[in-house]
Design a protein around this nucleic acid. Structure first.
Lengths: 198, 198, 198, 198
DNA sequence: CATGAATGAGAATTCATTCAT
DNA sequence: AATGAATGAATTCTCATTCAT
């Protein structure tokens, strides 16, 4: 039975609400225009309070990103964990991604910002991005070995697939009324699996 | 016939060298860490001089981006202008893109930064990005009408195709020794045209 | 007979332990880098608790200083209270100072810091310092009147004597292995009483 | 012939006036309460301007101190350079010190502040202080070797002499109408050379 | 009484922009 | 036209002080 004192709960709540605020502000303003002041206001706390929970701006951004991408990774992992054939896995992953970004609309901008480091940020969040690519590459390699798909450079293919589908997922975030999720999933899966040639 | 005085030539030269400098500095430092001071030094002019040719930092960045993407668009347009079948056009476009980024390695970072506005930038450079998507969508639509490829949402497909292939092109920029261009072109064209199913 | 309730005792204990903590922290960090947080931790109480016993940081520092210098004054007073001739009194005072700083190594830094007010401190602790000078001046004046020493400005002489000997006392605090106390006492007393001329 | 462009002169003038301002503000407020804002105002420049000439606050303070103590050292060196007997040298040094602090009344506080590091300051200015002690110790050692003064620990004696006389010099700075300089010089020299015993 | 999380005024520093030369 | 020193608004971060629990 986990022992969580009231303090821990409050602590966790604060951390979470500050990270949520950071996510929204970064989404609004972009990475480098997101000021601690605005994040504090968004979180409904004073500037100084943030520094009780995060060493500095860098740590806040990093942890905010990390928290979100960890959740995304978790969902993708779940989608990949079955023993289903590749095409079903692909659809499951696409569905997980669309679902995640639907629930975390703000994240997409943070995600874009942090793929490559910018300005003040010293530590890049690229490793997490890289890991995502490599995870997909591993899945593709397995499918190749099983003869489910053609043999080609799996990392290149993973890059193409992830970025291509991310673009559509992000586009959905920006659209007022995106088409049904299944439609986009089918489009991507169809293109990848069968190509577009008539 | 337009008369270009010596002043115009000098003007144009200055504008170009400042933009080139901006591109290199942004590539080095990232969008928000690129300072006017460093851009001026890179261009070999004084900080104040930049303001004779550009209203402010924002305009400089925007025009720098515009100049580069105009060239990229031009190359893509050339690749698309033939009456060749779709698969040849696709390969030509991919080749144009790879060539462009090979020659303008610095641009990729500016390109990434500006797809969505960031930080101080108020005006987005998205329209140019959007236009690129729409141009590709138009090509795809035409191919669909001609029965060369299956019918589906051309904008979605364009997004997927451009972002997916951009990711590979950018990866090439980051690699010390990227594989032969033809290899990546074949991979992308193969996936898109035929799919990956065995 | 004054009645000291349990509350008074607790009160006094708290005040004393906070002051002791303040002294140690100031000694470690220096006057302006000594934070209330660190003093509280050193004292083993919460930050807020300090404010139950001291109006603000200023009062804490002042009273801390006052407590210590009161003890120093007491020892010096004891050394001066005899009817011994001046040279014996001088040696007794020097011995008292050296002993005090040996036992309160931390104090020297507070002492140095507060001779003249610094930073946030508005009220100077100079009066206590001044009083010490004047006390020595009175002793010197008496010795002059008794014909034990030459007649000269007693305050100037007191300044010279106290600061000169403080410097040596403080140097002792900083040294890993200071020479025997008697050696330094003899040096100072010898110089003052007989001069250094061969 | 020294080549000093107009720029160099302006540069030097700015540096000097900012250092002078820093000296005055530190004298007024104390080391750690002296803000860059107030120093800038005192110097009649904008906050940012200081950073054109000094990397950061620390460098400003350090250089300000260094400039002043270099001048003090220079005067003392001149006073010590003659081949005069020790008592004349002693008087010359005392005279140099009194003169220096008369002309740089503000400096005394900076001097006091920096003998031992405080708060933000990382690099101590103690070496310069130490050097001054050692210089005096060397003079005293020479006088001992020549048989002009009694043999004793020269560093201890230097400490006692310098701090004792500094105290009087600083007292003079604080006094509205200090006594004639010769009087204080005679007092110190008399005490040191002959002692105070009747 | 004691606590320590929260506050926010204030400090250092950066950098786009201006303007006298 | 070109310069670059000067500016000061804006930003991050610190820490004395308060106050609800």
């Amino acid at each position: 039975m986990p022992v969580r004192s009231k303090e821990d709960v409050v602590q966790e709540f604060r951390v979470q609400s500050i990270q949520d605020a950071a996510m929204r502000v970064i989404a609004r303003r972009g990475m480098s225009a997101a000021t601690m002041q605005e994040i504090a206001e968004e979180a409904g706390v004073a500037k100084g309070t943030i520094y009780l929970y995060f060493r500095d701006r860098e740590e806040l951004v990093e942890k905010t990103f990390d928290g979100a991408i960890t959740e995304l990774s978790g969902r993708i992992e779940t989608a990949l964990s079955s023993e289903a054939p590749f095409d079903q896995k692909l659809r499951a992953v696409l569905s997980a991604e669309i679902g995640f970004f639907r629930e975390h609309r703000e994240f997409f901008r943070l995600y874009i910002s942090l793929r490559r480091p910018e300005g003040r940020q010293k530590r890049t969040c690229e490793p997490r991005y890289r890991a995502r690519i490599e995870r997909m590459a591993a899945v593709l390699r397995q499918a190749m070995e099983r003869g489910e798909i053609r043999t080609m450079d799996p990392t290149r293919l993973a890059l193409f697939l992830i970025e291509g589908s991310d673009a559509i997922v992000i586009e959905r975030v920006l659209q007022e009324e995106p088409p049904p999720e299944q439609e986009d999933i089918d489009l991507i899966a169809g293109v990848i699996l069968e190509g577009i040639r008539q």
